[in-house]
Nucleic acid binder design. Structure first.
Length: 230
DNA sequence: GACCAGGCACATC
DNA sequence: GATGTGCATGGT
């Protein structure tokens, strides 16, 4: 293993331009077409179920919900989702891990969205993005990453998602510290990109693609496409 | 059997 | 406010 650009800790000391970074990744892997899902409700639920687990496990729980007829964007399906007993929901969510917490959180989220917006499909005006972000952050079990994922992928609103991969990649390129807050990391992207949900969507998906290949199993970051001069 | 994976809340200091 | 811990499954 060679470490041409990385240090012993795998840190690359050359920051990359935020928009250029997108262009490089997009050129390499193209559109990722996130978030996978047949309905808006599936995307919203999936964002919550993907918390602290791999997508494979989250997808199993999503499939269980679909098979139970709970994830269609229809009045009947949504009513069923809102009325399902917590114990039954827990069984369906088991594969995604933390299933008791997630059942409680999902019910609370569905109740809230139902009261505020009725049955899906839902729409939120772009002008209300910030207000809705704050509303959702007030719900139990919804932190910034989950809320931004819901708003970006479920509602096509311009909220840049910061996840573990994003933090790791910025840190390795010397662009943030361990303790840099979520909001500060988000600003690094939003201040350097046009405010467009499609762009945020693809960029985050590409970062996850990058993270899986160059951060997880490659601590020296060999060949990272974002390294200057690579 | 240990470790990790697209978080978050809560207790404690 | 910073840090530690609980929540849990499934793949490698």
């Amino acid at each position: 293993m060679t470490t041409p650009k990385g240090t012993a800790s795998g840190k690359i000391e050359t920051p990359f331009e935020i928009y250029t970074g997108f262009e490089i990744l997009f050129k390499r892997w193209g559109a990722r077409h996130w978030w996978p899902g047949d309905s808006q409700l599936e995307i919203v639920a999936g964002a919550l179920l993907a918390q602290a687990t791999n997508w494979q496990n989250a997808r199993k729980a999503v499939s269980n919900l679909k098979e139970a007829g709970l994830l269609a964007d229809t009045v009947d399906s949504f009513r069923k989702m809102c009325r399902i007993r917590k114990e039954k929901l827990e069984i369906l969510l088991r594969p995604s891990g933390y299933y008791r917490q997630k059942a409680k959180r999902l019910k609370a989220l569905m109740d809230f969205l139902g009261k505020e917006l009725g049955s899906p499909p839902w729409e939120i005006p772009v002008a209300d993005t910030k207000a809705w972000r704050n509303k959702l952050l007030g719900l139990n079990g919804l932190g910034p990453e989950t809320v931004d994922s819901i708003l970006l992928y479920g509602f096509n609103l311009p909220c840049f998602v910061i996840d573990a991969y994003t933090r790791r990649i910025l840190a390795r390129h010397g662009m943030c510290e361990e303790k840099t807050s979520y909001d500060e990391l988000q600003e690094i992207f939003t201040k350097n990109l046009p405010e467009r949900s499609e762009l945020y969507n693809e960029y985050h998906a590409l970062i996850v693609r990058l993270g899986k290949e160059y951060c997880r199993s490659n601590p020296s970051c060999d060949g990272c496409p974002l390294a200057r001069g690579s």
